[in-house]
């Protein structure tokens, strides 16, 4: 067997081993992590707030920014449409599903989470209304600031967010105070 054939066999062995490690080891593991991450991103208790960092904006007027922001917040697995009132600085999110389908407890917790996140990311957002088929919820900036403090933008730091928002939302009584 000449030198070149030995080189071919050696390189082929390296290539096959590397290919198998990547194709059947690393890539499936990465995909599993991505699926797990995407699943976590649909729920307020497991959401990673750093994913909305790119969508911080001082003004509500940027429709694509608002869309991207909400597609990166909990309930992003539910189809939605947006209406922006630039003069009143308010936002309406129309979810194309029913509260009953998603689960009332989850909806109530996720809506508080989304409101705090959206108001922390968009400085002049003064109120949000969420519409579902048959149900509607509204949140004012003052109401959110009374509970979480000002300025809300200070909350968008991972550790602070986990302690001051995410952990508090685990408490059902804390969530219910927004719906009395």
């Amino acid at each position: 067997m000449n030198k070149k054939n030995k080189m071919i066999i050696g390189l082929l062995a390296i290539a096959v081993i590397l290919f198998c490690i990547i194709q059947f080891g690393i890539i499936p593991a990465n995909q599993e992590k991505q699926v797990e991450y995407a699943k976590n991103q649909t729920d307020a208790l497991t959401h990673d707030i750093t994913s909305i960092e790119d969508y911080k904006n001082p003004y509500i007027g940027n429709a694509s920014n608002v869309g991207n922001l909400f597609w990166n917040l909990p309930l992003n697995n539910v189809d939605m449409k947006f209406e922006i009132d630039s003069e009143a600085c308010t936002l309406t999110v129309n979810y194309l599903d029913t509260v009953w389908n998603i689960g009332e407890e989850k909806v109530q917790r996720d809506l508080i989470y989304n409101s705090v996140a959206a108001m922390a990311a968009i400085d002049n957002l003064s109120g949000i209304t969420y519409n579902f088929s048959g149900d509607s919820y509204s949140f004012e900036r003052t109401q959110i600031e009374d509970v979480f403090g000002t300025p809300l933008s200070n909350l968008l730091e991972q550790e602070k967010w986990r302690n001051d928002v995410q952990d508090k939302l685990k408490d059902t009584d804390f969530v219910e105070q927004f719906y009395k």
Partner: peptide
């Protein structure tokens, strides 16, 4: 084979 080895990072 050399091309294949160098193209493996593209799998990601």
């Amino acid at each position: 084979i050399v091309f294949w080895i160098f193209s493996l990072p593209l799998l990601f």
